[in-house]
Design a protein around this nucleic acid. Sequence first.
RNA 1: GCGGGGGUUGCCUAGCCUGGUCAAAGGCGCGAGGCUUAGAACCUCGUCCCGUAGGGGUUCGUGGGUUCAAAUCCCACCCCCCGCACCA
Length: 1026
Amino acid sequence: MHSYMSIDWQSIQRKWINAWDESRIFESDPIDGKPKYFITVAYPYPNSPQHIGHGRTYTLADVHARYMRMKGYNVLFPMGFHYTGTPILAMSKRIAEQDRELIETFVNLYGVKPEYIEQFKDPVNIARYFHAEIKEGMREMGYSIDWRREFTTIDLLYNRFIEWQFKRLKDKGLISQGSHPVGWCPRDQSPVSQHDTLGDVEPEFVEYLLIKFILRDGSDEIEEGLLLPAATLRAETIFGVTNIWLNPDVDYVIAVVDGERWLVSMNAAERLSYLNRHVDVERIIKGRELVGRRVIVPLLNRDVPILPARFVDPSNGTGVVMSVPAHAPYDYQALKEIKDGIESGVYYCHYDGILKKDILNGVEPIVMIESEYSKDGIPSEVVIRRYSISSQDDPRLNDATNELYTHEFYKGRISSDSRVAMNYSGMSVKDARERVREDMLKENLADTMLDLAKPVRCRCGAECVVKILRDQWFINYSDREWKRLAHQCLDSMQVLPEEIRDEFRYVIDWLRERACARRSGLGTRLPWEESWIIESLSDSVIYMAYYVIAKYARQLPTSSSMDEGFFDYVLLGIGDSSSIAESCKISKDLLEQVRQEFLYYYPVDSRHSGRDLVPNHLTFFIFNHVAIFPQELWPRQIVVNGSVLMDGKKMSKSLGNIVPLRKAIREYGSDAIRASLLISAELLQDADFTLDMLKSIKEKVERLYNACMQFANVASRGESNTHPYNKMGEENREEHEHEYVYEKQEDLWLMSRLQHMVKSTTEAMDRLRVREALNNLLYIMDQDMQWYLKRARSKGRGDGDIACAILQFLNARVRMLSPFIPFICEEMWSILGGKGFVSMAEWPKVAPSMINNIVDEGESLIMNVIEDVEKIIKVISMKPSKITIHVAGAWKWELYLRILGIVNEGVTKYGDVMRMLVKSIGSRSGSGSGSDHHHDDNNNNDDAVAGYAKSKPEIVKRMMDSILSTPPESRLRRASIGMLDEVRVLCDAIPLLEKEYNCKVEVMVEDNSSSAKKVALPYKPAIYIT
RNA sequence: GCGGGGGUUGCCUAGCCUGGUCAAAGGCGCGAGGCUUAGAACCUCGUCCCGUAGGGGUUCGUGGGUUCAAAUCCCACCCCCCGCACCA
């Protein structure tokens, strides 16, 4: 019986997973004449177990798949596993090195049995382990996947497929080779990006100009003509150079760099070699050994001294710095300290060298940029004073520098004195910088050097550098024509949610050459150069096509006989099947069957992923499809969803709030997790996962489950002869469900409501507005049922009498809920006596004949009256002993409907409406505008209405207000049903009202005698409480 | 800097495209009542301010504008979040 029992979610889950497996309902093969729908999700990278965050994307795709299946499509929803890439390899290396932290993560966090760890030295074993783990989680979540098509990206046949893809791209000229700079860890010998660095810093590059100062006075050990390349980002300040800085305590080297003898810091020499400069170090020398000598400033041919400075960082630029004291606060401060030191005779303390006083002769700041700051003297002095800085070790020098640099860059002009700035006089700083740079490079007075903008450390602790990779292979996403096709594809595609489309547009334009191969990692080798392995974001762009082939993988050879011919034929229809079959050593039938199946399922109808893949994978997916496939096989839709928060916080290892999916399933059950993930936010928003939500969903579902039990029991007892639900027959109940004719007001209403709910939910699902759909199904339909029960029960109707309508309502609700919470819905479906699996049942259709405007308006009138009664009782705070309801009389209805007609024609100003009402006086046979002919087109009637309007303008005003605050659809509906018989409607609700307020309730048409202040209006009866 | 998203009633989040049903859905939290030996759970109601008659007032980042009517449309401004690569 219907005792209030709680549900054993786990065993229901197990029961239906097995049932689905046995019946193989989610396996999809081509069916002639049946429309297909091909849904794919980004396959997982198996380097850790899934957590609930992953669950959102997959659950959304599964809900979509299940929905489309119920809509009658032959849905293909497959899954693969992405082994390609370096992280798994890096993990296995760390395991091999007995990395404690990682092993603990595996054992404690991921629940890996310690005895497995040993095997994890082989990266493939890591992948296989988590592959199995993730797959099991997906099955437990109830994803309706066709598992026969599962594959991994290191399967031999997949390798053949990727080789084919790359040959196609190369044939089309979309693969190029060249060099490009990357952030690089010298210890790991590999590129670093943000997530490889300490503190997740993105390595940023700057390009220094190296201005080659020439050593003037040589000596035995250091010959004249040695070049001192000073690194700068402000080439234009060369006109203000007064000296060169070297750090006296740092090791410098004299080295031949690409044929020239340079002095740079030892550290810089190493970095230069990563930039593919040919560097031969001749000798090491301390900075102080050069201090005091003089160098020639190129371009200007002035000579200036070399001075010592502590702030010079050997690991930044070249370790040689040109000094522009008027415009660089650091330089100004360092110079000042030397001067002060020499004055007081203490400067010797800072280094071993001897600094003669006369070395500073002529070393005075040269102001060569004019701006606000130069009006009051020397710009750098001005800012230093403002920040009250007194030492070159003061960190605020950075702020002072930024302030002055920014100001001068935007507002500054080069000195108009051509003795200072030659023919660059008067230019803006911006222009001068560019010109000086170009001119000096042209004359070989300068060189360039890439460097990291800020120091970056690798996770391993080593200092990173910029490395120029040579002979790197690229996919050339800059290709103009390719971009054009990608835009064309995007424009023709559905993008859900639509807000994200502009981001795709931007990414398509912004993409440049992308390195597509690496030296290490799992994956497929470049077919034309086997020392390279195709990188993971490049071997995952058209694999959706491979799901077709994967089904046949066991019947296909993996050897080199599976060459381009096979894939050309299957995927592009190129070639002759007999000869290709022969060369592939497979049967012609098989070959043609695979081709036919590909043509059946392709293109991809919907591609799902998290929004983090928009700037990379999803855009590459578009690019590669348009490059390889003909237009009719381009993808049709992309669906992007936001991420998952845990109790409002981002999930992260450090917070320790990552919930493994399988653990959550064991604790809460899959259905509740699925619904929670989808109900808490619309697509693009982050979804907040909370236990409260989980609990509330479970309770709602349990209530639904109990209702199913209760009324299914009633039906099966057959205790009532009014059981058309049973008579509808188990076989094709859904086809007959619209045939039964209800008579009672609330039954008609429930059925009408159901149609609205089916309509609105279906529309929401079509746009994948799953939150809205779930809200309808879980909450709004529940409210409707509560109202219905209240109405029916107040009339004394028993379970047997209402079971029919309720079961019909529940039947549709369970079906519509089944994509979201499939396990419990299968259970409820079988309780309700549904045939087969609810997973394969038909999605409810709207029965227009059951939409009943009069009943809808009637019920909402009842609800409004109750609301008004509540309000009144609340305000007067007394228990009513009698409630009297007066509904508007006929003449008010006439007037109301007339005004409604006028408003529906677009006249909404009070004055205009009034004029139109009055105008009808005396106009024979009426203009008819807005009047309701089905009532009476008698002119006397028009006159009467006009008369009322004239004599009671305040009523017209109130009616106007009431009509204008009614939504347009409702205005049309009210106009179409004409006069509502309010007395009949409200009398039907008297039992409910009397029960609710425990007093006598009376309904009557207003009478003129009751001279009350409150005047009844249509849809707004007057209420008296005594 | 460039690009994208967003600021809603205690909190989270709908609504905005297609102006009126909006004092604004849903969830959470909180309060009252019911149930219970008690508690938990559950159920009902309430939850911007004022009000002994269904009403009025002030709200949807800020300031303007359009309109009979603006959370919704237009303009300007302020603030927050995310992405910017060779990495899954």
